[in-house]
């Protein structure tokens, strides 16, 4: 079973390192101000992202059609 096939799961993709700076600049934020996603998230496991990566989430939006969100991959603190 692939988690990413489920209707509740939007498309996730890893943002190349060189694009991250551009995104942060566009939003005028620091990287730690991005929403977070844990390294052990089932989708992160499936797409192979690592701590420190930024993941682009392509959502189907009830208001905008498609909307883009970014999440920073973090390690879970036990």
């Amino acid at each position: 079973m692939k988690v990413t096939d489920h209707i509740l799961v939007p498309k996730h993709e890893i943002v190349p390192k060189e694009e991250v700076e551009e995104i942060l600049k566009r939003y005028n934020i620091k990287i730690q101000q991005l929403p977070k996603i844990y390294e052990d998230d089932p989708v992160i496991q499936e797409i192979g992202a690592k701590e420190g990566d930024v993941v682009r989430v392509i959502r189907k939006s009830p208001t905008a059609g498609v909307s883009i969100a970014y999440r920073l991959v973090i390690k879970r603190i036990i």
Binding site: L8, V9, H12, Y38, V43
Partner: peptide, 16 residues
């Protein structure tokens, strides 16, 4: 359960 099995983005959709 959705968060654990399908991830945080699926949980967000489930809440909505």
């Amino acid at each position: 359960e959705i968060q654990e099995v399908l991830g945080i983005e699926a949980a967000r959709n489930a809440i909505i």
